[in-house]
Simulated assay, not measured.
Amino acid sequence: MPVETAIVGDERGDFLYRSANNLRNVHGSQKCHDDAVALVFAKERNSTPGVGEIRFHVALSDGVSVVGPTYKAGSVRARDDVTWLTAKREGQTEVLDGESILNEIYGEMNNRIEFPEYYIRVTKRRKHAIGAEKVKLITSLSFHLVRGGDEEYLYVDGAGIKTGDCFQFYYADPAAALASCNDVTANLRSLNLGCNSKSSYQAAGATSNAGKSEVFGGLLFVCCGRRRFFSGRSNVDISPFVENFPGAPLAGIYCGGEIGRCSMRPEEQGSQGESSTRCCCHVYSTVYLVMSYTPAPPGATTLRG
C-alpha cells in the first residue's frame, strides 16, 4: 500500500439511530447499533490537467508507555473473544503463568501510576496475499486489553494471538500523552511551513498564494479515555491543529479504539521515517487527519469535453 495512503477511523463505536417506522419507535426513544462507517477518498490514477491536488496527512499522539521485558506466547487458547495464554521471557525457557507475569509487571511499575490500565502489544507475522500478489509474510502490531491473570493463564481481550508471538506490556500514561501532543504540534508545524490555513489564505487572496498549499480542514479521532488524562486542562488534544492552522475547520469524535495509518512522508516527520511494521489500531491515542489542497500550476489548462 502506498505510503501516502491515509486510513483513519473508530474501531468500535455506537451510532444513534431512529426508526422511520413509528410502530417500532412509538416513544421516539434512541437506540444504539454497532456498525461500521467509512469515508473513502480515492485519487485518480491519471490527474486531470488544470486540477489541483488534495493531500491527506495523518499524525498520531500516543498515550501509552512500555513497561517490562519482551515475552513470547506459549500455550494459547481462545474462548468468547478472550485469549488465555502462558508465556516465557524472551531468551529464557521457564514457562510463566498469568499471575507470575503480572507480578513481574507490578514490580517494574513500582506504583508510578495509581490503578493503571494494562495492554499487551503483540507482534504478529502472518502470511497474506492481496489481490493477485504472491503470498508473503507481513508483520503487524495489535493491542489487547489485559483482563487479569491467575495460576494458570494471562487473560486478554480479543483473538488472533498464536504460540511464538512476541509481546510487551503497555500502560495508559498521561505524561506520555502530553509529551506526544507536543511532538504532533512540532510535526504539524513543519507541514505548516509550506501551507496556509484556510482563513489566512482567504485573507491574503488567491493571487499572492498561487501554487501554495492550503490546509482546508481536519478531523480528530480521540480515545474516550483521554478525557480523564487532561482533567482541569482544556483543548489539549485540539491544540496541535488549532495552533498551526488557526481558522481552518476542525471536527472530531471520541472513539473506543482509534484507527490511524500514519501517512506523513519521511521529510515531514524529521528522522522518524517509515517503518515496515505498522500499528494501525491504537489505544489511548489521538489520530489527526489534516487535509490540504495544492492548486494547479499557473498556466495549466483544463480538459474540456
Rank of each mutant, 00 (worst) to 15 (best):
H57T: 03
V66I: 14
S75Y: 09
G91W: 01
K43A: 01
Y106Q: 15
D62L: 09
M109T: 07
D35N: 09
S47I: 00
S65F: 12
N103S: 03
L60A: 14
S61K: 12
R55A: 00
S75R: 14
I101W: 06
L102P: 06
L39R: 06
V40D: 15
L102T: 00
F56E: 01
T48H: 07
R77W: 12
A78M: 14
I101F: 06
V76W: 13
L60S: 09
S65G: 15
G98I: 04
G91I: 00
I105E: 13
T70N: 02
V95T: 15
R89K: 14
K72T: 04
A78R: 10
S100T: 15
W84T: 09
L102H: 06
V40Y: 05
S65M: 04
A78C: 14
T83Y: 03
Y106S: 03
A59Y: 12
V66T: 10
Y71C: 00
A59L: 10
A38W: 03
I54W: 00
L96R: 09
L96E: 15
S75M: 15
V51C: 07
F56M: 01
K88V: 14
S75A: 14
V76G: 10
R77S: 10
D97E: 08
F56N: 03
T70K: 00
N103P: 07
K88E: 15
V82R: 06
G52N: 03
V58R: 05
T48L: 12
D80L: 12
T70Q: 01
A78K: 11
K31P: 02
R45Q: 14
